[in-house]
Nucleic acid binder design. Structure first.
Lengths: 122, 122
DNA sequence: TCGATAGTTGAGCAATAATTCAACTATACG
DNA sequence: CGTATAGTTGAATTATTGCTCAACTATCGA
């Protein structure tokens, strides 16, 4: 009874679990890892980031490229900025965005190679 | 007037936009890329996947490791399975899960190195 | 055969998140 | 100055999504 008690009693392989637990990074680290992937895990943002991996672009040009509004792009850029994924410079009233970190480009590349290795959808 | 017309008229740098557009993968590809990152972009799933990158584990052990229910884990595993991120084998009534693809391990590693290069939060 | 346990599943709920809309700031240019 | 445009922002709306709960299947062992 009370089966949903977090499965504490019924450990199948305690040794393995303990070993994995000891080799697991801090909660905080894995949380930030998830956060990093989450920010890449949206079609709009991934398109923005892929574009910025090719070229520094202003908000209006990004919006035009994606076929969406400046507002939507600006909201996403704010998120990306707050997580230090993109940086910007102002030139008059125009704001140019670019990737803040080479790791993001690497992740995009690694992700794309994962995609292409998967072949066509099942 | 009608400023929100997708910003079509007001292109700041048409040449750059055209160049980027030509160098952009198909919509479908970027969508699948976002999907790949999205699946890694959740604390529960990232913990599951990190654990599986170390050791083949059954559902109950994963639940115990994460301190959550078998149901929650099973739901997430179903998603991971449907995207071919994990695979499984049955041994009696026990189901052992493991990573399906080395790319996922690479992404986790690249992501972790991105995290650690960021230093402590601003 | 019967009870217990591993795992799956669908429905519903609560939280989160992406977009739209409208209002706003700031800069450029006539 | 005044108007137009680039960009930002907050609120509201709508769509996702992760988890819980309860019911279910399947396998093991007594």
């Amino acid at each position: 009874m009370n089966e949903r008690a977090v499965c504490t009693i019924s450990l199948i392989n305690e040794a393995k679990v303990t070993a994995v637990k000891n080799a697991t990074p801090e909660e905080e680290t894995l949380f930030r890892l998830a956060e990093t992937f989450r920010v890449l895990g949206d079609p709009t943002r991934v398109r923005i980031l892929h574009a910025l991996s090719l070229e520094e672009l202003c908000v209006c040009d990004i919006a035009s490229l994606l076929g969406t509004t400046k507002s939507a792009v600006s909201h996403q850029l704010r998120l990306l900025r707050s997580l230090r994924v993109v940086k910007y410079r102002k030139d008059g009233r125009i704001v140019y965005y670019s990737l803040d970190d080479s790791h993001v480009g690497n992740l995009l590349r690694e992700g794309l190679s994962h995609i292409s290795s998967q072949g066509v959808s099942p």
